[in-house]
């Protein structure tokens, strides 16, 4: 028998601190597998965010840098401009990218920096204890909106991919999900395209990955997958919003 699936060399042997069933682990693995398949593990530099994935630098088997909250795209810009031949990516959650980091992500796209961003959207702040994020759905409960998010008070959830797709410098924008094996395979393809876009020098690339947060949603991991499919995908439709040909 031949091995058809084993852990990628793109991840270290360290066990993650993520809660049981948190899909961060899946997304880490997809990014690492893509970096391995593109043969850039020795050439890649990742920038970790603030949030649950703040310790991503312990898990990716590549050079990593830590950024202050929301500023990963700015740090990645500096790294890429100093070392244009390296593959540079940021790994950010929605509390990091869609809230305190909106200026950085909009302008990194605006400038068309040749970096790749993996944007993990689980519609809540994870590490800090389940507060409402800009991406929290209407009616969804969080510790700072205990009766559910209301449009009148907090506005509608921010659709980051749609927003960034309006910016000329954003060459590749796609939203994927990891709630079942079919979508996980599609997510990996999108992440690969995003990195290829960077390697070809076509501009800024971002993949938004819909993710679960069983702990702060207060739902069991397997039920969280169903909750994501039933509630997040209708508001955050999956698909490609921009490819280099359109940019």
């Amino acid at each position: 028998m031949a091995i058809v699936f084993e852990k990628t060399k793109g991840l270290t042997d360290k066990e993650t601190h993520y809660c049981p069933g948190c899909t961060h682990g899946i997304i880490h693995r997809l990014v690492a597998e893509v970096l391995e398949e593109l043969d850039v593990l020795g050439n890649a530099i990742g920038v970790a965010p603030v949030g649950c994935s703040v310790l991503a630098y312990d898990y990716f088997n590549v050079d990593m840098h830590e950024a202050s909250h929301g500023r990963a795209p700015a740090v990645a810009t500096g790294i890429k401009r100093a070392m244009p031949n390296n593959v540079v990516f940021t790994y950010q959650g929605d509390g990091d990218l869609a809230s305190i980091g909106t200026a950085e992500i909009v302008h990194v796209a605006h400038r068309g920096e040749k970096i790749t961003t993996i944007f993990v959207n689980n519609a809540i702040y994870g590490m800090t204890g389940g507060q409402m994020a800009p991406t929290t759905l209407i009616g969804q409960k969080a510790t700072t909106c205990q009766d559910g998010r209301s449009k009148a008070h907090s506005g509608m959830p921010l659709r980051v991919s749609e927003m960034l797709a309006t910016i000329d410098g954003a060459a590749f924008v796609e939203r994927v999900s990891v709630h079942n094996p079919v979508e996980i395979r599609k997510a990996k393809k999108a992440i690969k395209k995003a990195f290829e876009c960077q390697i070809k020098g076509e501009g800024f690339s971002i993949v938004e990955v819909l993710s679960t947060c069983p702990t702060n949603w207060g739902i069991a991991p397997t039920e969280s997958l169903k909750w994501l499919e039933a509630n997040m995908i209708p508001y955050y439709p999956l698909g490609n919003f921009r490819t280099p040909e359109e940019a």
Binding site: M1, V4, F5, K7, C22, H24, G25, R29, V178
Partner: peptide
């Protein structure tokens, strides 16, 4: 099929065929 390994967040599973 490796679906289990694909969805495992903690790289617990190795698949042979």
């Amino acid at each position: 099929c490796a679906n289990c390994a694909l969805i495992c967040p903690d790289c617990v599973i190795t698949v042979e065929r």
